[in-house]
Design a protein around this nucleic acid. Structure first.
Length: 577
DNA sequence: GCCGTTTTCGGCCCGACTGTTTTCAGTCG
């Protein structure tokens, strides 16, 4: 049984939950949670590192003890500490942590007094009014427990896709802007960090009279339930299930509040430590020397005061950005305006909705200089994938269109399937007619990691292989990525001069942020492409750019920031003779 | 349990809101 990073993270989080319920040292608990997060965020497999005898204690938040425990899990699949803990407190008890409003202390009390270990037992106890009389509990707590259980049952509580959340966030922000005295209304949190999924919304407001905007907030049409309401902070749940926090802050604290509520929590902790080292205190109200506020109006001022350059929200994950900032090594992140074209677009010839001319027109309106028509190959029968003859017809059509265009180029491409044996779904003598190929896996997702990797590497051996399309095949919240050895794939891409796609479709966004960073570190360039099927899809480019920014990418790391001339040179180099 | 421009011990981010209290613990982010 291969041990995945997520398995280790789950075990450590489980240990942390149980230690917390036992009332152990909070810092020891935090150490387990930090380690879980570190392991989960690694792009390499910890199991591989252990096998290669790498020293895990060099990883942040992992010391000698936890390194040993990780090795133990990798080798045996189990952690004796967890088994010991579970003999004292049943493991299922940690499931109760999912009930919002219940923390370790109350769960421990429930377990101690009423012997509650499962959600069902909790629900029953609440229904039978056995909870409200416990010390520290009351009628309201009991009622909110029942409400939470009901919610947990009916909706699988999962993070929503960024593009979906935007549809709720934008009208709400507009609604708040109309409040009397409202000045700045901004969505902070993971939304501002442009994370691919968002758990809840954090909205920040500055205004003359806080009461108006608060009032307007809790009375918004889409609010299902007001969870908390105060002078400076309120929390509601929208009908969609999305939780939204609104904080009202004074203007002198706007920057520090923005920083604080944008997070990530881990980034905040890291920069607070930087502040402490300079004998300063940083909180959401500002930077303080003693009792004197020395910064806080803007984020830039706050960073400057603690001796750092401005760090873009997308980088604020405590993945090395604070150190890079300190050493003047922050990347100059790619901007939307630097994208010159789109290298993965489908037409009605396969499963797209529009003609090449319509796509050209739409791409031009969006400021592009080129698009690559990349329809499916024959293997994808459901999408009417092209046979060689049909692709040749499309190539001829593109040639005719290009003759008429003077300041725009249609590139000849295909999204060709990588078959199970690693061969490409179309013969070389038609592929060689193209400017580029987007090579993708659309079948046999369940192959073992070894075989899936071998399959892709074999495909990359084809001299006409240019871009690996949606490299892990995951669909956010719907389909897990297929198992591949991304290290080997990136090495091969670097050695062969091929590229990896960052698929900008908000359901995919794959390469993910960690893989983007890995590509950059390994010197592999990417193409950010929309995989457009209908004209509106062209607008998804910005989601791909955000993902790339989260992965530290600069314009130079992305091939479609090049002019068409420069791009063609790059593509030619990848065609090996 | 981790970590070090307060370095091998003694810290470890910090404030708002709620419910249950009668001054505060628990939870959350």
């Amino acid at each position: 049984m291969p041990v995945h990073n997520s398995d280790i993270a789950t075990i450590f989080n489980r240990v942390a939950d149980l230690l917390e319920i036992k009332g152990e040292n909070p810092f020891r608990i935090r150490a387990y949670r930090n380690a879980a997060r570190t392991v989960e965020g690694l792009s390499q497999s910890v199991a591989d590192l252990v096998r290669d005898d790498q020293d895990l204690s060099t990883l942040s938040g992992i010391g000698k003890d936890l390194a040993g425990k990780i090795a133990e899990v990798v080798e045996t699949g189990e952690l004796p500490l967890l088994a010991d803990l579970e003999s004292e407190v049943p493991g299922e008890v940690s499931q109760l942590m999912r009930v919002s409003g219940l923390g370790a202390k109350r769960i421990a009390a429930l377990h101690r007094t009423l012997k509650i270990t499962t959600l069902e037992e909790l629900e029953q106890a609440a229904t039978e009014d056995r909870i409200r009389d416990l010390e520290g509990f009351g009628t309201k707590t009991q009622q909110s427990i029942l409400q939470e259980i009901k919610r947990l049952k009916q909706q699988r509580q999962q993070r929503m896709k960024l593009a979906v959340v935007e549809q709720y966030a934008e009208p709400l922000v507009e609604h708040l802007r109309r409040a009397q005295g409202a000045k700045d209304i901004v969505v902070a949190g993971s939304y501002r960090r442009r994370k691919e999924t968002v758990g809840d919304l954090d909205i920040l407001a500055t205004c003359k009279k806080g009461a108006d905007v608060m009032d307007r907030f809790v009375r918004y049409d889409d609010v299902e339930r007001v969870i908390a309401q105060g002078k400076t902070k309120s929390t509601v749940r929208l009908r969609s299930g999305l939780q939204v926090d609104l904080r009202v802050v004074p203007e002198v604290s706007y920057g520090s509040a923005m920083l604080y509520f944008t997070g990530s929590k881990e980034h905040n902790i890291a920069i607070r430590k930087v502040a402490i080292a300079k004998k300063l205190k940083l909180n959401e109200y500002g930077v303080f020397r003693g009792n004197k506020r020395v910064a806080g109006r803007t984020e830039a001022q706050v960073y400057e005061e603690i001796g750092l350059p401005y760090i873009s929200p997308e980088l604020r994950e405590n993945r090395g950005e604070v150190e890079a900032a300190r050493n003047g090594k922050l990347p100059t992140l790619i901007e939307n305006e630097e994208i010159r074209g789109d290298l993965h677009v489908h037409t009605k010839r396969t499963d797209g909705r529009h003609t090449i001319e319509q796509l050209v027109e739409a791409a031009r309106e969006r400021g592009h200089d080129y698009i690559a028509i990349a329809d499916h190959s024959k293997r994808v029968t459901v999408a009417h994938g092209l046979k060689p003859k049909e692709l040749r017809e499309e190539i001829e059509e593109i040639d005719r269109i290009n003759e008429r265009l003077n300041d725009f180029t249609v590139l000849k491409a295909v999204e060709v399937d990588i078959l199970e044996d690693g061969s490409l779904d179309l013969p070389d003598d038609v592929l060689k007619e193209l400017d580029l190929t987007v090579c993708s896996v659309h079948s046999k997702f369940k192959l073992s990691r070894t075989r899936q990797t071998r399959r892709i590497l074999k495909a990359m051996d084809n001299r006409y292989f240019t871009v690996l399309g949606h490299p892990t095949g995951r669909m956010i919240n719907e389909r897990e990525p297929y198992e591949v050895d991304m290290d080997k794939i990136m090495e091969a891409a670097r050695d062969r001069g091929s590229f990896l796609e960052v698929n900008a479709h908000p359901d995919r966004l794959d390469l993910n942020d960690l893989h983007c960073k890995m590509a950059r570190d390994m010197g592999v360039k990417v193409a950010i492409s929309t995989d457009t099927h209908r004209l509106d899809d062209l607008d998804a480019m910005r989601f791909g750019v955000s993902q790339a920014r989260r992965g530290w990418l600069e314009a130079d790391d992305v091939i479609n920031t090049r002019s068409v001339t420069e791009l063609k040179k790059l593509l030619k180099r990848s065609h090996r003779t």
